[in-house]
Simulated assay, not measured.
Amino acid sequence: MNEPNVKNWAIILGGSRGLGLATAHKLSEDGYAICIVHRDRRADLPEIDNQFAKIKKRAPAFYSFNADAVNPQKRKEIIQQLKSGFTEGDRLKVLVHSIAKGSLKPMYNPHGEALSAEDIEITFRAMALSLYEWVQNLVSENMNHPDMRVISFTSEGNTKAMPGYGAVSVAKVALEALTRSIALEFAPLGIRANCIQAGVTNTSSFNMIPGSER
């Protein structure tokens, strides 16, 4: 049982749509304070704000940041602002990584732009390395609950070659490897990490994959 007014927090990276948003809704229903970090265009904000308002009604506390979760300086600013809003005893119980920021260019494209090494690097940093950076920064700020969960999402592209999915495939394989290492090396702090392969889920990110309709 939590002490009165002590809150368990959940940070959802990429929480304005798809799996991240659904997770935010569910965790708010279960009594978690919610912090969503997302990156969206101004035109999309009215519908996003409508979803956030529903979460805010249920959650004991709520923050949202329309900022690049991959940017080191933005990450530190968000963490400091969130930490300043913690009351005594508050801890981060759940970190959900649902960032879908990657290149879907084909490796070979005689009629257009092909996938570059820089595209792969950007995708890897956003969809894999950022998970470790967030965990590392949150732990260094002593914000982690002694029974914290780290959750990320992978896909069958981790083993199956698909056209236009090369950069994301690299990121998903790395994400899984990082998750295993986080689970092992942060275990002394009580942190548990899992990477979920949920199967085909009809989200806006999924629909951007070439051939997703098949």
Rank of each mutant, 00 (worst) to 15 (best):
V6D: 12
N8S: 08
G18R: 02
L19P: 07
G20F: 11
A22K: 10
A22V: 15
A22D: 14
S28V: 14
S28N: 03
D30C: 01
G31T: 10
V37A: 10
R41N: 04
R42N: 13
A43G: 07
P46C: 13
P46K: 12
E47D: 07
N50V: 07
F52S: 13
K57E: 12
A59P: 00
A61H: 12
S64E: 15
S64R: 00
F65Q: 05
Q73K: 04
K74V: 11
K76E: 12
I78P: 01
I78G: 02
Q80P: 01
K83H: 04
S84I: 06
T87C: 00
E88C: 07
E88L: 10
G89Y: 10
R91S: 02
L92M: 13
V94L: 08
L95N: 06
L95H: 06
S98N: 02
I99F: 03
A100S: 04
K101Y: 06
K101S: 00
Y108R: 07
N109H: 11
H111V: 09
H111P: 12
H111A: 12
E113H: 03
A114R: 09
L115N: 14
S116L: 03
E118W: 13
E121L: 10
E121Q: 15
L131C: 05
L131M: 01
Y132P: 04
E133C: 07
E133P: 03
W134R: 01
W134S: 06
V135Y: 07
V135W: 03
V139N: 06
S140V: 08
S140P: 04
E141K: 06
H145V: 01
P146H: 00
D147Q: 12
R149V: 12
I151C: 05
I151E: 13
S152A: 08
T154L: 02
S155Y: 14
A161N: 04
P163C: 11
G164I: 03
G166T: 04
S169H: 09
V170N: 10
K172I: 03
K172P: 03
R180H: 09
A183H: 02
F186M: 06
L189I: 07
G190M: 13
G190I: 08
R192G: 11
A193W: 13
A193Q: 11
I196A: 14
A198N: 14
N202T: 00
N202P: 02
P210R: 15
G211S: 11
S212M: 06
E213D: 15
